[in-house]
Computed example of a mutant assay.
Amino acid sequence: MSGEINWIELPAADAAKAKAFYGSLFGWTTMEFGPDYHLIQNGPAGAITSGDSSHPRVYFATDDIEASVRRVHELGGRTEDVQTIPDVGRVTDCTDDQGTTFSLYEPRA
């Protein structure tokens, strides 16, 4: 459904420490998906990843990423180029009209 949170990314300077922290806190287990990208197996849909950000990234579902990008711009926000992730879908990073970052995700058809 459009607008639902469907993915989160928890960045950490040290992904191994973050995996241990959230594993101890919530009992989460992870599966490596790529270099420093660890899918959360038994928690929210998302991943723990190495990164220099100290803020989680929230992905909102959209049925039409191109229309959502246009609407973000109409509302005074900004977007990056839409990227296709093979076998996953299309995503773009956005900033709202007050500077808050988020992402949009359109599942693969």
Rank of each mutant, 00 (worst) to 15 (best):
E9C: 11
H73R: 13
G89P: 01
A61L: 10
A109C: 08
W7D: 07
I40Y: 04
E32S: 10
T92L: 14
F33G: 13
T30F: 15
R78F: 04
S103C: 12
I85P: 06
G89L: 07
D87K: 13
A13P: 02
E74W: 03
T84D: 00
M31D: 14
Y37N: 01
T100V: 15
Y37C: 11
S54Y: 10
H55V: 09
P44H: 04
C94V: 10
K17E: 13
T92S: 09
M31K: 15
A18Y: 05
A67N: 05
R57A: 15
K17V: 11
Y105E: 00
E66C: 06
Q98K: 15
C94R: 03
W28C: 01
S53Q: 12
G89T: 03
R78E: 00
S54Q: 15
A61W: 05
T100Y: 12
V69W: 00
G99Y: 02
G99V: 01
G77I: 07
T100H: 14
T49L: 11
S54R: 13
P35K: 08
N42C: 02
F102C: 02
G23C: 12
A12Q: 06
T95N: 01
Q83M: 15
R71I: 03
V72F: 02
Q83N: 12
W28Q: 07
D64N: 15
R90F: 11
N42A: 00
I8R: 04
P56K: 03
V69C: 14
R108F: 10
R57D: 14
V91G: 05
E4T: 14
G77P: 08
T92V: 15
Y37W: 13
P11C: 05
F21W: 11
Q98D: 02
D93L: 07
E9A: 05
G99C: 05
N42E: 06
S50D: 10
I48Y: 00
M1V: 14
H38F: 12
Y59V: 02
K17L: 13
H38W: 10
H55R: 11
S68E: 10
S103D: 04
A45N: 11
T29L: 03
W28I: 09
T62R: 03
L104P: 00
R90C: 10
I8T: 01
M1R: 05
G51S: 03
D63S: 07
T95M: 13
M1S: 09
V72H: 04
V91I: 15
K19Y: 07
E4L: 10
T101I: 09
A13L: 03
D36T: 02
G46K: 06
A12H: 01
N6P: 01
W28P: 06
G23H: 08
T95C: 06
K17F: 08
Y22L: 08
A45S: 12
R57W: 08
R108N: 14
H55C: 05
S50I: 07
S2Y: 02
G34R: 04
H55F: 10
G34A: 15
E106P: 01
M31C: 13
V58Y: 10
E9F: 11
D52T: 15
G46D: 09
S103K: 02
E74M: 02
A47N: 03
I8H: 05
